[in-house]
Design a protein around this nucleic acid. Structure first.
Lengths: 334, 334
DNA sequence: TTGTAGGCGTTATCAG
DNA sequence: CTGATAACGCCTACAA
């Protein structure tokens, strides 16, 4: 691989001059620039980003840490951030945190060791304290889907509680009184908030929901299946089911079908996230929209603004869930 | 951030010695090792991967280029490779090629400029020639889902043609004679091969399929919807539909539902890929299994073997599709 | 406008 | 077993 040195020799100029034309800083005469350019592509020269990064302490790359690399939710998160950043000529380095503390820590270390200029983090396990410490070290970071008070301007988050509220409220408004719930793991903040919203809705209007009608899932499809199975076997009647995310909802729907239930006639189901294929389920899933791609773009914008001093960017930290009505919910006919 | 120099001072040894204990090469006395270790964690020292990479010309990171960061297929591809590599203490750097030549080239350049030790590529647009040239430059790479003869031992590919054959064969065996097809874009090799398999099946048994019953999609859900709509309006009857991937199949199913069709009674549908949610569709989708995660792991293994000299790894380059029977296909009752 | 030289944090090759 | 010291490829004052 040709180096900047080879270029300088071939162009008959100094290292410094070549560096200047690469970075388009400093003043270089048109003639010299041309010479250098020609030398560069006659050699097929490509700057070594590693060396640039070491010398300049800038890598033009942003680290992204997410729990898993697959799945529709995180897919959109990655895609949103990558798109926005690519447009600004920055690159992303992505790694998985696998929802456990050690792994999340290792992921952050890895990203930092790669000289990332900033981090976008979707964490499940790491403590607020750790993140605050990170911030204090001067590491620019943006936290997605989590609200940490002292770091509020570095958080891009959704009002999960309101989302949970909206879902259950919709069912209540349609006359449902026996509503089951398949939850996400309560040690995840978003799952907890969604559940709180779920309990708030009936409380407001003096309605009581049965505690037995709650199943603890893990946000994966299988646990939706498992959840509905358990609920159905519990001898508690219910006419509607709220799932803490769409994946569990689709798992539950598949199980309902398997049991020969008519949907939505025999059971109204509502999800959360509005992942891409929720509208392709049958019946199309009524759900709560989680604008994750927008949020990821916003995270990217925040970094562009703070770290790279891009002007004219408006930042909003809080995003709001909305109800998407489709065909998986029917009024209670009782 | 503490450097190796700080550590050496605090431990009262030389740079070289510290480097030795970091890399566990060279012989260092137990006593010295201990001193250095203590100095390292009292300083919270973490090696700067960038500097290591520059000095050693090894980055322990593997570049992955895929068309899109989201979507179930590529999600599994990433996840498979990342898992296998992480187990071997290597890291991945992921970037998107967006299915166009320029972008794919830029992606590769980016990965190379980050000093990746090897590349895993899923390309759509880049020519064989370009890849061969890359190989000749001595850049270790693995190509997924594409067969390039001169590079055959660096390719991990699926027999897409057989897959296409299996799908249509299944329908023929069940008595279907009017079979529509929603294709992927023919400039993508896999799409082309699948279609060839589709046409081979009837030819074998002297059956003729109508050419009009083919719609050109783009592998996205919407084009499945659009495709079925077009097909239905074409005034050509058909009792079964083959889709070149599951996403288009789900789009088609949603449209069929919308039109009030009974599935699978009024139309048998078969997909390709066996993406994670195909079993959650209703009816659960009969499809062709594409072991993408396995293949990605194999790609990783190939790199571990060739680049990092890991012993005892068995490599297979070709993978085979299998028919997954679920509930979206019924025998033709004509 | 251009060139010189020191430095970024490591690794690796020598001697000792 | 340990320590100097020259790379690695580039950036960036500072000089000229």
């Amino acid at each position: 691989m040709a180096t900047i040195y080879d270029v300088s020799v071939l162009a008959g100029v100094s290292l410094a001059t070549v560096s200047r034309v690469i970075n388009k800083n400093g003043n270089v005469s048109e003639k010299t620039t041309k010479k250098v350019m020609e030398a560069m592509d006659s050699l097929g020269y490509r700057p070594n980003a590693i060396a640039q990064s070491l010398a300049s302490n800038r890598s033009n790359s942003i680290g992204i840490l997410i729990p898993e690399l697959c799945g529709p939710f995180f897919g959109n998160l990655m895609a949103g951030a990558e798109k926005r950043l690519r447009d600004a000529n920055k690159h992303v380095i992505i790694t998985a945190g696998h929802s456990n503390e050690e792994s999340e820590k290792a992921g952050i270390e890895f990203l930092l060791s790669r000289n990332c200029d900033a981090l976008i983090l979707h964490l499940d396990a790491l403590s607020d304290d750790y993140l605050e410490a990170l911030c204090e070290k001067g590491i620019p970071l943006v936290i997605i889907n989590r609200y940490i008070k002292p770091l509020h301007d570095r958080c891009i988050y959704l009002d999960n509680k309101t989302g949970g509220y909206l879902a259950t409220k919709e069912l209540l408004d349609l006359g449902h009184r026996k509503i089951a719930y398949i939850a996400g793991p309560h040690w995840k903040e978003d799952a907890k908030a969604r559940f709180e919203g779920h309990t708030q809705a009936p409380r407001e209007t003096g309605i009581k929901l049965e505690n037995e009608l709650v199943y603890m899932g893990d946000f994966k499809q299988e646990s939706g299946t498992e959840g509905l199975k358990t609920l159905l076997n519990s001898n508690h009647q219910f006419t509607a089911l709220v799932c803490a995310n769409d994946e569990m909802a689709s798992g539950a729907m598949a199980y309902a079908r398997e049991q020969g239930m008519q949907l939505p006639e025999e059971l109204s189901i509502i999800g959360f996230d509005n992942i891409v294929y929720s509208s392709y389920l049958f019946p199309a899933l009524t759900t709560i929209n989680y604008p994750v791609e927008e949020m990821a773009k916003m995270a990217a914008a925040l970094i562009l603004k703070e770290v790279y001093q891009v002007k004219g960017l408006k930042i909003s930290n809080e995003f709001y869930p909305t109800l998407i009505r489709r065909h998986s919910v029917l009024p209670e006919k009782g």
